[in-house]
Design a protein around this nucleic acid. Sequence first.
DNA 1: GATGAATGAGGGTTCATTCAT
DNA 2: GATGAATGAACCCTCATTCAT
Lengths: 207, 207, 207, 207
Amino acid sequence: MARKPLTKPRKYASQGRSRATVDALIEATARILVRDGFDKASTNRIAEKAGVSVGSLYQYFPGKEALVAAVMKRHGEELMQVVRDALAEAAALPMEQAVRALVVAAMEAHRIDPRLHRVLAEQIPRMGRLENTEVLNGEIHALFRAWLDAHCDEFRPLDLGLAAFVCVTSIEALTHTAVVHHSESLSEEAFGALVDEATRLVVRYLQ
Amino acid sequence: MARKPLTKPRKYASQGRSRATVDALIEATARILVRDGFDKASTNRIAEKAGVSVGSLYQYFPGKEALVAAVMKRHGEELMQVVRDALAEAAALPMEQAVRALVVAAMEAHRIDPRLHRVLAEQIPRMGRLENTEVLNGEIHALFRAWLDAHCDEFRPLDLGLAAFVCVTSIEALTHTAVVHHSESLSEEAFGALVDEATRLVVRYLQ
Amino acid sequence: MARKPLTKPRKYASQGRSRATVDALIEATARILVRDGFDKASTNRIAEKAGVSVGSLYQYFPGKEALVAAVMKRHGEELMQVVRDALAEAAALPMEQAVRALVVAAMEAHRIDPRLHRVLAEQIPRMGRLENTEVLNGEIHALFRAWLDAHCDEFRPLDLGLAAFVCVTSIEALTHTAVVHHSESLSEEAFGALVDEATRLVVRYLQ
Amino acid sequence: MARKPLTKPRKYASQGRSRATVDALIEATARILVRDGFDKASTNRIAEKAGVSVGSLYQYFPGKEALVAAVMKRHGEELMQVVRDALAEAAALPMEQAVRALVVAAMEAHRIDPRLHRVLAEQIPRMGRLENTEVLNGEIHALFRAWLDAHCDEFRPLDLGLAAFVCVTSIEALTHTAVVHHSESLSEEAFGALVDEATRLVVRYLQ
DNA sequence: GATGAATGAGGGTTCATTCAT
DNA sequence: GATGAATGAACCCTCATTCAT
């Protein structure tokens, strides 16, 4: 029996007061993560910022990691919604436009909250197997792979798994790096140019 | 007045014993980082593993961060050597082979010490602007850009900076993800296939 | 003004539901005390195990100590019943058989619930003068003394108080140590032999 | 690998400064144990009373229990010295005087520091197998048994182990209860009378 | 230079108790 | 009466860093 692999909330509070407390805690965690980084996000500080006592924090979360996991989950769901929508639209578009739509979606997903995204991305590896993150990642690969499969007659012969890995990883890296590390130095046009290039990268790779 | 922007060794020890102490400390840090992760790497532990007293540690490094920075620097230099060599060779090769050589070099660079690479990669962001890392990153971009420039007549018209960003970021992401996150599940053949794909990705993008 | 000398139930609940709640709480406390020890017996845990809310717990008991005191009282009453019965019987027996009956009774009293007895015995001192315990102890001494008094013509001249102290303390210690600390390593025969020895100890002392 | 069964000092400090710190900590622990009881003896409080930082406490002891164990060890050694000396003397005395000497020794042992003895006695059971205590207890039984063995021709036929248990347990209980629980209400004469009675109890039992 | 004992702020966590609903 | 969310003082413990020797 592992001593503390707990990254799940203790209660799935759904009634008013509880729910508000939980939300305040998650929100506070996200804010502190953004403002001060993971290391400064102590349970006491989070509780204080949430306007709640430490005791309440521990009533709902078994520790700091669970809070960060909750933030990740929340953020991940927002991300996935963007990505899912984009892939749904992409189904009906001609290939190049479809790819472009995906790239744009990836960019938008990163732009939902770039600072938070960054901190979370950096902490994921340190948090001992976040199933949630892996699930999302897996879902993206699966969705993209399905899209490839549906359009495979438009491409050269592909190893779908490998191609999905190459495309998803590249798009992710390009949009992530641009948004997370160069947001301040890039103009809107530069982002536009990057979308063009990323699209070309993927399209030509698949052809 | 910044409280702790100190990430540089206190002395550029070059005489025998000092140098040995410094090396032992860096080595111990690297080993603990790999074995136990950043959080478990306390200065006392590092000093002990290095066979040195904490006091001595602080004689050569202003703090824990400086030690990690030193490890990063050392690792970064090894990385850069591989990359530099590859780019030097690439200069004389026909384009596709050149790109392949670069991809292989990136893979090799990540494989020098994947566990260490991973820990360092994860810690970089937490360590307030490591000039060193950014310099190396900058050098890679510059080198690649120079290579692009030298071969620009073989490509379509390119924005060199943007193209370098796209290529370097993609190659980095693909090799990093493969080596750091999937080393255990990928066969040699799979790595070979990935090299092929990454090469194709870049070559077709540039044409 | 003493801060927490409260070891008495808040209500002498006698109506059905209340009484059931109180009983459930005492029972839960006893069980947790036995299973997990005093330190793990938190009020929340007790309430939960009793199938009651913490709030209700505090409606009937002013605090944790009061619960333990209630358990002690309940256990003490069971003990005393055994002892009283034995002394009542002993009145009619010839001296040696009477002593033996008392020793056996002491043994049985300790065996009612040895694990609980042990935990309680260990906790008594930490609970600031439990009148109850002292009362019981006093009663035992008084009863025994009365018995001595009634049979004093069969003994050498005695300081009754002192003799009662010596006998009661010795019998208590022998049976307590045997049952509480050596139950697992002693056979039934060994217990029988111990009864013989304790009886001899007391009889010869009194003669 | 048990997580915290550590009741041993971390370092057997013997040089000046360290030794002084360790002593101060043990002394402070003993004093707090006496003044406030086990539950109030927090590591921070002990450190403070010892005029030392918590950090230092943890440099030498892995936790509160180790400190208490150290106090027990120190106290136990004092006790044993008294008991050993008495038994050594007793070897040369006629039986009744020998028993009396032992009873007196037991009394003196309890009187070394009755308040401390009491707290320790109460805490022993809660501290998960204190080898030290059991060893001492075992030594006392062994010594007494050896004495019985050496004088067995003066007694009725005995099961030596059982007889040692009966005698040691009784003497211990009588002296312990008298000293620890009734010190304030008993005069010197009363103690003298008790010694007489305890001696008689044991002597007549053995004859 | 080297040593390592000492420091103490600060982090994680629990639990007896209260009180609005 | 009953509930259980909320509280927060108090605990245990770690570790970067200093400084007398």
